[in-house]
Amino acid sequence: MSLIRLRGIGKVYELGLARVTALKGVDLEVGDREFVTVMGASGSGKSTLMNIIGCLDRPSSGVYELDGRDVSRLTDSELAAIRNRKVGFVFQTFNLLPRVPSWRNVELPLVYSRVPAAERRTRAFAALGRVDLADRALHRPNELSGGQRQRVAIARALVNHPSIIFADEPTGNLDSRTGLSIMALFQRLHGEGATIIMVTHEMDIALHARRIIYLKDGRITGDERIKKPKHADKELSKMADLEEDELTEAIEKHS
C-alpha cells in the first residue's frame, strides 16, 4: 500500500479578483522507503505540492490519503499532530531559532508532543549524532556553518521518527560541496529506511534520488525511476582527492 496517494489534487490561490491555479489535478503515489525528487521550472507548483503533501496546506480539490487516512478534511489541530509525528520538514532557509543551542532547536517537535524534558534532551542529542553533529549540540546556529545549520534542521526533522522527510530545496542556500554532503546524509538516512521527498532545481542534486517527478504548470508531466543514482559519498571523496593534488595539476585536469 502506498504511503502517499494523491487523487486529482488541485490548488487555487484567490488573490482578490485574480485566481492563480498552482496545481491542476495532480495524481501521485509514493510508497514507503522511497527517495523522490520533485523538479520543474520556477512557479510550476513544486512548493505548493510539497506543502500539501506535508500537511502544511490544504488542497482546494481532490483527495489526499496519508498512510491510508484521508487528510484533506482534518481539523487544524489534527493536521498539527500529523506534522508533529508523521512528517519532518527541512527548509531552504533552515528556519532555526537563532538564540538557543542546537539541541534545543532539535527538541522542538518533542516539546509539542509532550515528551518529558529529560527524554527530549537525550533524543535531541541522539538525532544530532545521526547527522554527525554531536559535538555541536551546545553551539548556537550563528556559531555554525551553513551546512551544519542544515544538518541541525535535518536532525530536528528526524527527532520524532517521522514516516516522511520533506525538504524544499535543502541545498538551495549551500555551496555545491556542502550540498553534496547533505545529499550523502539523505542517502544514508534513506539507506536506514527513511522516506524522503525533496524539491530541487539542480539535476546534479536530483540524481541522488531514486525517482524524479517533473512538474509543469501545476501538472505532473514526467515520472521516472533513476536506474543508477549518483553516490554522494563517492563524489565527495573524489573532491577530497582533488584537494590533495597540486593546484596546477588540478587546473590542468579540469581544463
Binding site: G54, L56, D76, S77, A80, A81, R83, N84, R85, F89, F91, N95, L97, L108, P109, Y112, S113, R156, N160
Partner: peptide, 16 residues
C-alpha cells in the same frame, strides 16, 4: 512570524 511558521510546521497547534 517565520518562527511561528516553523513551530507550526513541527507540530505546534494554534493553542500552543
Amino acid at each position: 512570524t517565520q518562527e511561528i511558521g516553523m513551530r507550526m510546521a513541527v507540530g505546534a497547534r494554534r493553542r500552543d
